[in-house]
Design a binder for these strands. Structure first.
Length: 436
DNA sequence: TCTGGGGTCCTAGGACCC
DNA sequence: TCTGGGGTCCTAGGACCC
């Protein structure tokens, strides 16, 4: 028996009182660039990943030109030049700051908010009069646009997954004007029957290929499958998606962000690098940043993983990749210790004769700093006062004002970001430079 | 020439124990 | 010759997300 047969009588679509709204900023990074550069409004805009490698955000005008998400920049270069597309390197401090402002405004519209990503948040609309929801959504959209200058889409449903579906419709159908409220059973079924399985939240590339090879093309087709089949082939995740699409909420609003379990710092190099010297400078730099990130969140660890790899796109070159798990004898977030351990690890997995493309560090099994106790109290205090000075100097005078000797001075390996906009909202000095 | 970065969760299978 | 079975814990890898 399929899920839908089992559940039709129970009429889940009407049973739940709770409502979720998903607010999603349209082409977020491109929209951020537009706030401070009015000349590019209504013009095609794309934003590139680190190293100006891939296209990671596109304005509607850029989408219409056929530029694909995730497409390598060099492949789209012809279309970009021909159509005078405005191109920006990513400027995460700008986007992060704008995101905080958007979230702050959103939180005035409901006491229950989950910040889901840099450009998305779920709000809970419990106890709202359904007739007034549309007005409320309009107000959200207008306020964010007016106060911050970012266009958003709003989708409302009885589960997070249905709110995602609604948001998808709000974005896709122009006549909806950025708002879609999906609560009526008939309408839900209608929309699910034309929703491609690949567009369901939680179903990615692999699963959608698998589903289509089994004759499942729409979300509605998916709901026709027997429960046992879904469980067997897609595990609990598949089952959960089905329940959510049927209006049975399985995913709750996470108002308090869980503390991070891992923390990764990795970059592709601006140029392929071969020497141990260059590689160790980059690893020292990533380890330094990783330690800083831990201190920002008051976290510590005693285990980390180091990895490095060559460019697998470059078929002519010899390929090598390796990773190493590194244990530290005590919990720490001390830059000096973490850099030292990372470099010791690098010696073990570095092999000469390869052109390295990327390296990174993952801090694992993170726990709260307050957990440090016992034998290492002495070291802890000494280290944390040094690290505090380290962090406050870098905060005041800019990143990497102070750094460990291992990071080196000639950063040949560092990223290329040729088209970056100024950090309008976060770095006064840079703004001055530009204005002058 | 040029192909991102940072996360989460789930599962299968091995190690180990009694 | 014949060599248990069930439980737990850990880890690597795969899938997904933005």
């Amino acid at each position: 028996m399929s899920f839908i047969q089992q559940t039709t009588d129970k009429n889940y679509y009407r049973s739940s009182k709770q409502l979720f709204a998903l607010i999603d900023c349209n082409s977020f990074y491109a929209s951020c660039e537009r706030i401070f550069n009015t000349k590019i409004i209504k013009k095609p805009v794309v934003v590139l990943s680190n190293n100006d490698g891939c296209i990671i955000a596109r304005s509607d005008e850029a989408k219409e030109l056929g530029i694909q998400m995730g497409e390598p920049f060099f492949k789209a270069k012809d279309i970009i030049t021909k159509n005078k597309v405005n191109v920006f390197s990513s400027n995460y401090s700008l986007y992060g700051d704008i995101s905080n402002r958007v979230m702050e405004v959103l939180s005035t519209f409901s006491p229950e908010i989950e910040i889901y990503s840099i450009d998305e948040a779920f709000l809970k609309f419990d106890g709202f009069n359904e007739k007034k929801i549309d007005d409320h959504c309009k107000k959200i959209r207008d306020t964010i646009k007016q106060w911050i200058g970012i266009p958003v889409s709003v989708g409302v449903g009885r589960t997070k997954t249905l709110a995602k579906v609604a948001n998808h419709l709000a974005k896709k159908n122009k006549e909806k004007k950025g708002i879609s409220i999906l609560l009526e059973e008939k309408e839900i079924k209608q929309e699910l029957s034309i929703l491609d399985v690949k567009d369901i939240w939680g179903i990615g590339k692999k699963l959608s290929i698998f589903l289509k090879s089994n004759g499942i093309y729409s979300a509605f087709d998916f709901l026709q499958k027997e429960r046992g089949w879904v469980r067997k082939n897609m595990g609990v995740i598949g089952e959960r998606i089905v329940m959510e699409l049927l209006g049975l909420s399985c995913l709750s609003l996470e108002m308090i962000p869980n503390s991070k379990k891992n923390c990764c710092v990795s970059r592709s190099f601006g140029y392929p690098i071969e020497t141990f010297e260059d590689l160790s400078q980059s690893v020292a730099n990533y380890a330094t940043r990783a330690a800083e990130k831990l201190r920002e969140d008051n976290l510590v660890t005693n285990v980390m993983s180091l990895f490095l790899l060559t460019n697998y796109f470059n078929k002519k070159d010899l390929q090598y990749s390796n990773s190493l798990k590194i244990q530290i004898d005590y919990l720490t977030n001390d830059t000096v210790v973490i850099v030292k351990k990372a470099l010791e690890g690098l010696k073990k997995i570095y092999r000469p004769g390869y052109k390295y493309k990327k390296a990174g560090i993952i801090m694992l099994n993170l726990s709260q700093e307050s957990n440090i106790q016992g034998l290492f109290e002495f070291n802890k205090e000494k280290s944390s006062s040094l690290m505090k000075s380290f962090d406050s100097i870098n905060l005041r005078y800019g990143n990497s004002t102070i750094h460990t000797a291992a990071e080196g001075i000639n950063k040949l390996w560092s990223m290329q970001r040729q088209k970056m906009s100024p950090c309008y909202t976060t770095r006064f000095n840079e703004l001055l430079k530009v204005d002058l």
